[in-house]
Amino acid sequence: MIETLLEPLGFAFFQKGLLVATLSGALLGFIGVYIVLRGMSYIGHGLSHAIFGGYAATQLFAAQFYVLGAGLWGIASAIAITTVARRSRIGADAAIGVVTTASFALGVALFSKFGSSGPAFDQALFGSILGITNSQIMWLVAVCALTGLIVFFRYRALLFTTFDPDVAAASGVKVARIEALLMVMLSLSILVTLTIIGVTLVAAMLVIPAVIARMLTDSFGRMLAISTVTGSACGLAGMYLSYYAGVPSGTMIVLVGAVVFLVVLGISGVRGRRRAAGLDQHSDPRPRVAA
C-alpha cells in the first residue's frame, strides 16, 4: 500500500502533477461554491470552452504567452457574457451558448487547420500530467494565493452579493464590482487549471465538490471549507488513479469526484438531497429586479 503511494513519487513529473492536481482541485472547489450558489454552473462550463479558443490561438502564434492570451480571452468572454445577459433581451443561457461555443469552435478549427492537434490538443481537452512546466506551477500558486486573499478580505461582501444582491447594494456593497471580481477570479482559475483538468472537465470540478459540500452542511463557511478539501482530495486521488490506470488526469479526477458524490448522496440521505435540490433554482445570473 505504502509502496503504491510512494512509487510514482520517484518521478519528477508525477510530483509536479500531484502538486498541481491537488492545488487545482482545491482552487476549483473553493471558487465553485460561489459559482454553484449563484446558479452559474453553466457559465463555468461555457467559460472553459471560451478560454480554449484563446488558448488555441496563442498556442499557434506565441505559445510562450498562452497564459496571457487565453487569460485575456477568458476575461473578455466573461465580460461579454455578463454584459449580453444584463443589457439585452437575450437570455443568459443563450448568450453563453453563443459566445462560448463559437470561441470553442474557433479553437478546434485553429488546432485542426494548423496541425498541432497532437498531444497539445488532447491535453487541453482532457488534461494531462505530462509536460507541466515550472511556470505553470507558479501561475497556479499565484492564482490560488490571489483568490484566497481576495476572498479573505472581501468575504462578507462576496457572501452578501451571492445571497441577496439587492439588499447588498442597498447596504453599500459595490455589487457590480464584486461580481466583476468574481468573474475575473473564475476566469483565472479556469485558465491555470486548464491543462491539468482539461477544458471539457473543468466545469465538473467547479460543480462536484461544491454540491458535495452543500449536501453535508447548511453553513456557508463550512461549505467553503468542505468544498475546498473535497476538491483537493479528488485531485490527489485522481492523480494516483490516473497514473496506474493510464487515463488522462482530468478524466480520473472527475470520476473520483463523481464517486464521492454518489457516496455522499447515499449517506446524507433525504436531508442531503433536499439541501442540494434548491441549487438550480437560480439559474438566471441576471440581478433580480422586483417591480
Binding site: F163, S171, F220
Partner: peptide, 29 residues
Amino acid sequence: RVAYVPQLETVDWNFPVTVGECVLMGRTE
C-alpha cells in the same frame, strides 16, 4: 446609514447560511 428589510420571498431560502451568518452580512461595510 440606511438599512433595508426586503420582502421575504425575494431570497433563496435554501441558500446555505445560518441565522448568525445572515445577520452579520449587515456588517459588510
